[in-house]
Design a binder for these strands. Structure first.
Lengths: 200, 200
DNA sequence: CCGGAAATAGAACATACGTATGATTTAATC
DNA sequence: GATTAAATCATACGTATGTTCTATTTCCGG
């Protein structure tokens, strides 16, 4: 039943996640991964069927927990969350949990249109709907279209900070390590954007 | 054999742009490009030095006009542009020029970290500095770090709307065709975000 | 019309990759 | 302790890639 040295699978996933985050998917070879994990090359095709399946497995391991954490944080804010609390619940878990893993996952999803559409349909759609409802309570006068666009603007700003954080730091000297401060800045920025008068 | 063509360089660029947008940089081989362009394989390494240089050239051909248009629009706003005018100059040309080509090119650039780093270092740095200076005039009390973050948030929201517009439309029913309205919405959202009190 | 430079052609090279194979070792069950 | 299936290992295969090399062809000023 129990496999001998069954942590091989986990070690491969950990190494893959690390290297995918550092170098990207195409630039990371299975030999890089097996060397990092101190595991035989064939182990990847044994435990996972192919490199693509390994990538999907690496994504899947981090995808669900983050979205459940966003939901949970929104619930934890009580029955009448403020605009700032809603935004923080939306972006906080993404920026806090597994920085490198999140970066690689989002980059991968965003660069594969078909995968992204499936992820949006299966996981993001209900999440967005839940947050849209919460926003409607605190912003009753904002039309739905405007509300959706501003939520997407917020998501875009967040994704930019996450997936391009390293380059922003190197190019513009931004401090991406102070995660809490970055979240506070994004929350403040987005909250002001949400409260702007609607466009006619 | 075949008649000589002086437009070989342009044909390679056209084919490269098409295939890069469809399949990505890594997944597009030089043989794919030369087949699409109906050109000899060695022509790529003759006219361009390497595949990386070809990628840079393909990007530069589209990026440069857009960036000059952004600069020009900022200048056209006069010596004392408003915050809204600055933001509009920053995002307008990106959303207006070459919609399909821009969408695919930005998507690929953003999903290829090494390529993106080159682009940022070579072309975005001065643009950002110029807009940062303009922003400093209309927002004299905003610390530089905060100003830079908010500019990046704006860039992220814009990139999200451009590169994921199709999926946002299909998933959430957003109207991405009304380009002018979208720009107006983003300008209003970002302007309010810029004017938010600073984070302590 | 000619001669040298620029451009194109075909072919080969070296290499890195994902995957498959067959032998060997490990760990649990009897 | 033998059996057995899962897991690990070393190795090789086939392929695709970017690049380079050396002819050959085209272009254009004289």
């Amino acid at each position: 039943m129990t496999a001998p040295r069954s942590d091989t699978k986990t070690r491969i996933l950990d190494a893959a996640e690390k290297l995918f985050g550092e170098k990207g998917f195409d630039a990371t070879s299975l030999r890089d991964i097996t060397a990092e994990a101190d595991v035989n090359l064939a182990a990847v095709n044994y435990h996972f069927q192919s490199k693509d399946s390994l990538i999907d497995a690496a994504i899947l391991r981090r995808a669900a927990p983050v979205n459940t954490a966003r939901m949970a944080r929104l619930e934890a804010a009580g029955p009448h969350p403020t605009l700032e609390q809603i935004i923080e619940a939306f972006i906080g878990p993404v920026l806090e949990l597994h920085e490198e893993a999140m970066e690689m996952m989002m980059t991968r999803v965003f660069s594969a249109p078909d995968v992204m559409q499936r992820v949006f349909r299966d996981h993001m759609s209900i999440l967005v709907r839940r947050f849209m409802d919460a926003l409607a309570v605190v912003l009753p006068d904002l039309p739905e279209a405007e509300r959706m666009w501003r939520l997407q603007f917020t998501a875009g700003a967040m994704a930019h900070a996450v997936t391009r954080g390293r380059i922003l730091q190197e190019t513009f000297g931004l401090d991406v390590k102070g995660r809490g401060l970055m979240i506070a800045r994004l929350v403040k920025f987005a909250a002001a954007g949400f409260r702007a008068p609607e466009v006619h």
